[in-house]
Every structure is written in structure tokens, then in C-alpha cells.
Amino acid sequence: NQESVVAAQLIPINTALTLVMMTTRVVSPTGIPAEDIPRLISMQVNQVVPMGTTLMPDMVKGYA
């Protein structure tokens, strides 16, 4: 089963992602794949992401 990127903390809107903000977990439905974490660093979220929420492609500016 593929791991997806999950918020390790509350991420406010327009925050640039850092490694410490993200963790990985096997979730359903699947979100952004864990191997894309290096690509996500410094990208901004376009909404508030509560802790434990799976990051979906449409939540990250410039990802999709």
C-alpha cells in the first residue's frame, strides 16, 4: 500500500511547506504520494490544513 503525505500539524493558509509539517501514512483515499515530499518543500497550501489531514493535489499551489 502506498503512503500519502499527511499534515503533521495545523498548516495555516498560504504557508510554505517544510519537512517538519508533513508525515506519511497509508490512507484512503490516497493523496499526494510520499515520494513527492521533496517536491512539496517550499510550496504553499491554498487552504487551512488541519493536523492529520491528507494533502491532496488541489490543496498545494502549483502542484497539480
Rank of each mutant, 00 (worst) to 15 (best):
T54W: 02
S28A: 14
Q2R: 14
K61A: 13
N1Q: 14
A16M: 15
A8N: 08
P29H: 06
R39Q: 09
M59C: 03
M51T: 06
V20P: 12
N46S: 07
Y63K: 02
L17S: 00
T53F: 07
T15W: 04
Q9L: 07
V49Q: 01
A7E: 01
M59H: 06
M56E: 10
V5D: 00
N46L: 06
V20F: 12
E35Y: 11
L10M: 12
I41W: 03
I13G: 15
V6C: 04
T15R: 08
Y63V: 04
Q47Y: 07
Q9I: 09
V45R: 00
M56R: 10
T30I: 14
S28T: 15
V26Q: 15
K61M: 13
V60H: 01
V60F: 10
T23E: 11
M21G: 02
L10C: 04
Y63N: 10
M22D: 01
N14Q: 07
M51Y: 07
A7R: 02
T18E: 10
I37E: 04
A16V: 09
Q2Y: 07
N1G: 10
Q47A: 07
D58P: 08
M43C: 03
I37M: 15
P38K: 06
L19Y: 11
I13H: 11
T23Q: 14
V49P: 00
V60I: 13
I41H: 05
E3A: 15
T53R: 13
L19H: 15
T53C: 04
A34C: 03
E3I: 13
L17P: 02
A8W: 04
L10F: 09
V48P: 15
N46I: 10
I13C: 03
M56S: 09
I37D: 01
N14T: 05
V26H: 06
V26N: 10
G31C: 03
T15C: 03
M51W: 11
N1M: 15
Q44S: 12
M59V: 07
G52S: 08
N46R: 09
I13N: 15
A64W: 05
N14K: 12
V5C: 03
R25Y: 12
L17G: 00
A8H: 07
E3P: 09
A34V: 09
R39P: 02
L40W: 02
E35T: 15
R25T: 06
I32C: 03
Q2D: 13
N1A: 15
S28E: 15
T24F: 06
G52V: 02
Q44A: 10
V60D: 01
Q47R: 12
T53E: 13
P38H: 12
K61N: 10
M43T: 05
V5P: 01
I41Y: 05
P50H: 15
L40I: 11
L10H: 15
T24M: 08
A16T: 05
P57W: 13
M56D: 05
I11H: 00
M59T: 03
K61G: 07
A16F: 12
T53V: 13
A7C: 03
M59I: 03
V20G: 09
N14S: 11
Q44F: 10
V26S: 06
T30V: 10
N1E: 10
T53A: 06
L10S: 11
V48G: 06
K61L: 14
P29M: 09
M51V: 12
V45M: 05
M59D: 03
V27K: 12
V60L: 13
Y63P: 06
A8T: 10
P29V: 13
V6I: 12
A8Q: 08
T15Y: 05
T18D: 10
T54H: 02
M22N: 00
T24E: 07
S4V: 03
D36W: 10
E35A: 10
G62Y: 06
K61V: 11
P29R: 06
Q9N: 05
Q47C: 04
S28Y: 15
N1W: 09
M22R: 00
M51S: 11
G62Q: 11
S42K: 14
Q44T: 11
I37R: 13
M56F: 07
R25D: 06
V6T: 10
E35F: 14
Q9R: 07
T30Q: 09
L55C: 02
N46Y: 06
M21I: 03
R39C: 04
T15M: 09
V49E: 00
N46Q: 14
G62V: 04
M56H: 08
R25C: 04
I37P: 00
P12E: 07
V6W: 02
P33R: 14
N14C: 03
V26P: 11
P38Q: 12
I41M: 14
L10Q: 13
I41K: 06
V49T: 05
P33D: 05
L40A: 01
L40N: 00
K61P: 14
D58L: 07
L17I: 11
M51I: 11
V49W: 02
V27L: 05
M51E: 13
P33T: 10
T18P: 00
I41T: 10
T54N: 02
V5H: 01
N1L: 12
G31W: 02
M56W: 05
P12Q: 10
T24Q: 15
P12R: 06
V48L: 14
V27Y: 02
S42D: 09
V60P: 00
L10K: 08
A8I: 05
I37C: 03
G52K: 04
P50Y: 15
L19M: 13
G31L: 01
M22W: 02
R25K: 15
N1F: 15
K61E: 12
G31P: 00
M43Y: 10
I32S: 01
V6Y: 02
